[in-house]
């Protein structure tokens, strides 16, 4: 299977007061056509920065892509010019952001904001773009789309606005849809609806989806494959079922254990809410030549502090970067 989107050895550096920090450190992953890949990790792990790098929207200064390549269907986007990137954004790759409340422009109607994209990329007339926008609103299950098209964002609820964002992102039938924590700002009841919607509309438009999240629950629900990131590095990658059942990196195991289980019996091994002690290191530590997770790891050994963990290919689809891999037989959810 050839990759639709291929990120290879991507390094993004930020210039900070303490020097240059690699917010994304030698990251590689592939995205197949139509598949749903999830980027998981805590805040500050470089997930959103990866998305912005793919979109060509890294804020510069202070950021810049230092090395690597991002290719979409064989075309290296990092070498594409501004004009070409503008043609790619919103048309071939589009993005749904975390904050539906502030991501729509308050002074334009939602119809205008959807049809604007269509007019720009598909060369549609105003009338055609409006008709298609109504269709898109209908596709994202907004009731009375012909009337809603004239609404301003403040007249819609958060869930509705996120639907509009999805309609906007999918209007041009992009090959890749990047959803950056699309449900984090929404009510839990709305989350499931948005996921269902993304799955359905994504399938219909045949878009491959990159879902960025910190919630393993969302991953289990949405994704087919997972890339776990920590402090700008990929620490584990694999199919969702493998990762959830046999996480090999201690951090992945920690993330899974953090998902609260309402109906589970509370026991000594499984207290009500689990946490990973400590927090993501500050940017200034990002280039560290050991394992960045070492300070928080319960399996840490001397080597972890001295050498950057090598990637171990566990199965053809699963790999992890750790000196002291978790045994395969330990199941977190047992």
């Amino acid at each position: 299977m050839t990759a639709l989107l291929s990120v290879k050895n991507l390094t993004v550096e930020f210039t900070t007061r303490d020097g240059i920090a690699p917010v994304i450190d030698d990251l590689s992953f592939d995205l197949a056509p139509g598949e749903t890949l999830s980027l998981v990790g805590e805040s500050g792990c470089g997930k959103s920065m990866t998305a912005l790098a793919i979109m060509g929207l890294i804020p510069s200064p202070p950021g810049r892509v230092a090395s690597g390549s991002i290719s979409l269907a064989g075309e290296n986007l990092l070498q594409a010019g501004d004009t070409r990137m503008r043609a790619v954004r919103g048309n071939d790759i589009s993005m749904v952001f975390q904050e539906p409340m502030t991501s729509l422009n308050p002074v334009f109607t939602v119809g205008e904001q959807i049809s604007e994209t269509l007019r720009r990329h598909q060369g549609l007339t105003r009338r055609q773009a409006k008709a298609l926008s109504i269709e898109m609103l209908d596709a994202v299950q907004i009731p009375l789309p012909t009337r809603r098209i004239n609404d301003y964002p403040h007249q819609l609820s958060g869930g509705m606005r996120q639907r509009v964002m999805i309609a906007m992102a999918l209007a041009c039938r992009p090959k890749v849809l990047i959803a950056d924590e699309p449900t984090t700002a929404l009510d839990v009841t709305v989350q499931a609806q948005i996921f269902d919607l993304m799955r359905a509309v994504g399938k219909e438009t045949e878009a491959a989806i990159i879902l960025i999240t910190h919630d393993m629950g969302s991953v289990a629900e949405m994704a087919e494959r997972v890339v776990v990131m920590y402090a700008g590095r990929k620490i584990e990658e694999g199919c969702v079922d493998d990762i959830l059942a046999r996480p090999r990196h201690p951090y992945t195991r920690g993330l899974i254990a953090c998902v609260p289980h309402l109906l589970e019996t509370v026991s000594a091994e499984r207290p009500y809410l689990q946490e990973i002690p400590g927090m993501v290191p500050p940017l200034s530590d990002f280039g560290f030549m050991g394992c960045l997770f070492a300070p928080r790891c319960d399996r840490v050994e001397t080597r972890c502090w001295q050498e950057k963990p090598k990637v171990t290919q566990i199965t053809p689809s699963q790999s992890a970067a750790c000196w002291n891999l978790q045994e395969a037989k330990v199941r977190v959810d047992a």
């Binding site: 954004r89 048309n91 952001f97 422009n105 002074v107 720009r120």
Partner: peptide, 26 residues
């Protein structure tokens, strides 16, 4: 620096449209 300007950029609008349509009006 607002989210909706980033959205406008993510839509692939031209620099002129981003600045004079989406940002300036606000």
């Amino acid at each position: 620096g607002s989210d909706y300007v980033r959205t406008a950029q993510a839509k692939g609008l031209s620099e002129f449209q981003v600045v004079f349509k989406h940002a300036l009006r606000n």
